[in-house]
Amino acid sequence: MRTGGTSTNAERSGSPTLTLGVEEEFLLLDHSDGRPVDRAPAILTLLGDEPRVKHEFLRSQLETVTGVCTDLGQVEEELARLRRLAANAAKDMDCHLVATGMAPQRGPRLCPVTADPRYLQLIARYGPLAAGPGTCGCHVHIGIPSRELGVRVLARLRPYLATLLALSANSPIADGRDTGWASSRYLRWTRWPTAVPPRVWRSVADYDAAVRRLILRGDALDERGVYFHARLSPRYPTVELRIMDACLTIDDTLLVAGLARALVGLAIDNERDGVPIKAVSSRRIAADLRTAARHGLLAHAVDPYTGSLAPHRLLLDGVLDRLAKPEPIARLLRCLALRGTGADRQRAMWVQADTPQHFAQFLADATLC
């Protein structure tokens, strides 16, 4: 990856002052057969008052939540601590904590749901869509000065959603086979009617009106249930990027979080400096997302500055060229280029594993790397 460039100063951004936080979702797989196991309640009881490990939709899932961080060093420390904490508790309950977008082995047809009133409402309204196999994502929150600016940032982020998906793709193995997709989670997740890219809204009033329409027509329970791939958080003063698979390793998550913050910072700087980007149609955005889910970083997408199609690796070079301080993102990208994405490594593990149990162990080991 290149780490230098010829962009003008007005186009360059380091965005070191933007705060960020990361939510990671994990699966619990049984030691004996590698299938999802509903031991999250017991693990949370074991962890007691730990506020940053939480239940998720299914009883076979856990979520960890970092605090509000000001630099990637903080993020790395929290990710490592929370993964170790949850993994050790899972081990005590005879299961693995694994970071993957989809369960590698099929679990029960109707997966046990956490006894939370909101989750039970989702089951009542959406039936099998909500009760089927769970997916695990990585959500990154970036602090923004205002919701009005946030809406304009969302418009500038649209073309990069496919790149974030390609970079984080980590669910090629599902239902006991290689699905042929780098992110099979994307296929499952986008069955939800609101799991779509954000549109280009003229104002925050237009954004809020679009959210209200989705709720009124029954596509979402409430604002929290509007699952745009990137959205204004309904709870925090942040832009929340939700397109990414749960990342296999800590470094993978760190890269995604750092890149997400860089893209938001670049969008803010470009918006304030009047740097134009090309209009990209919703159809093109959807096509780029699908090819990213299928082929990962080998896929192509539209460069928002030139309007031409380019491989995701070149699009990432273009982002680095526009950053005043490309490190440590450039270093993390170089490491990823050497070891491969989560999807690449999962496929290698799948070939090496003798049994589903061994594959689950490989995933659990990588989750703590």
Rank of each mutant, 00 (worst) to 15 (best):
R2I: 13
G4V: 10
G5L: 06
S7C: 14
T8S: 15
A10W: 13
R12E: 05
S13P: 02
S13A: 15
V22R: 00
E25H: 01
L28T: 06
L28V: 09
D30N: 14
D33C: 10
F57M: 14
S60I: 06
E63H: 05
V65S: 13
L72P: 02
V75W: 01
E76P: 00
R81H: 12
L82E: 10
R83Y: 03
R84M: 08
L85Q: 11
A89Y: 10
D94G: 00
H96E: 04
L97A: 07
M102C: 15
Q105Y: 05
R106A: 15
P108S: 14
V113S: 04
R118S: 10
R118M: 08
Q121L: 13
L122Q: 13
P128M: 08
A130W: 03
A131M: 12
P133M: 11
C138H: 01
G143Y: 00
I144H: 06
L149G: 02
V151H: 01
A155E: 13
L161D: 10
T163C: 12
A166Y: 06
R177E: 13
D178F: 02
D178C: 06
A182D: 13
T194P: 05
P198G: 07
R202E: 15
V204S: 12
Y207W: 14
L214D: 12
Y236G: 00
E240A: 08
I243E: 05
I243P: 07
T249P: 02
I250T: 15
L254E: 04
V256S: 12
G258C: 05
G265I: 07
G265C: 07
L266V: 07
D273S: 15
G274N: 11
P276M: 06
I285F: 10
R290P: 00
A293R: 05
H295Q: 14
L297V: 11
L297S: 12
L297I: 11
H300F: 13
D303S: 09
T306V: 01
G307F: 05
G307R: 03
S308L: 13
L309A: 10
A310N: 03
L314N: 08
D317V: 07
V319F: 02
L320C: 09
L320W: 02
A324P: 00
A330W: 02
R331T: 14
R331Q: 12
C335E: 14
R339W: 03
T341P: 05
A348N: 04
Q352H: 12
A353V: 06
A353C: 04
A360V: 04
L363T: 01
